[in-house]
Amino acid sequence: MTESLLALILVFAIIAASVALYTDELLSAVIAVGAVGFSGSIAYLLLGAPDLAITQIVVEVVSLVLLIRVTIGVGLRLTSGPSSRKRITAAGAALLAVFALFLISLKTFAAFGTPVMERIQGAPSVFYIERGLELTGAANLVTGVLLDFRAYDTLGEATVIFTAVLGGLILLRRKGRKNTGDSAEDAG
């Protein structure tokens, strides 16, 4: 039941992704990619990941706002023509090769419904599940992993976010630094 529902949602996401890439209007492309993100959120809910579903909704709303900021006021029509035929055939050939690799590698993958932790001896997930409550005191094991067992990863995440915010501020500031010499030619 869950599997067929998930398949339906994924097919919807695939259709939305194709629409996003091949529509002529940038604004509708942005809306379509929002549909991909929200279907992902529903899929997370079905997969037993409520934290992820909530995060995905928030992130998707913010990213829609960002993308609409990029597209609005630009003129909704896409000015560029289609890509050259040569490029499309080259990309298609490359992707066929990659898809063949996926087919081969997914053959060794266990069927859907058996988690990775059951196939690997001494997987860290088993330890997290069994001792998580006792060692971290968090009933929600995902937050236990995020903020305790793998806190360094979360610290790195915070660093990445901080760097991205700094980069965005530097790129978008209205007033550049005072022109101190001959080197800076366009500060605006």
Partner: peptide
């Protein structure tokens, strides 16, 4: 279900947003 991929994907989603912000800038 396995909590470990979920925790890592949580990190990945948030990093994806900050990367998107940088890309749009």
């Amino acid at each position: 279900v396995d909590p470990f991929p979920q925790a890592m994907v949580m990190t990945s989603i948030v990093i994806g947003l900050s990367v998107l912000a940088l890309m749009t800038a």
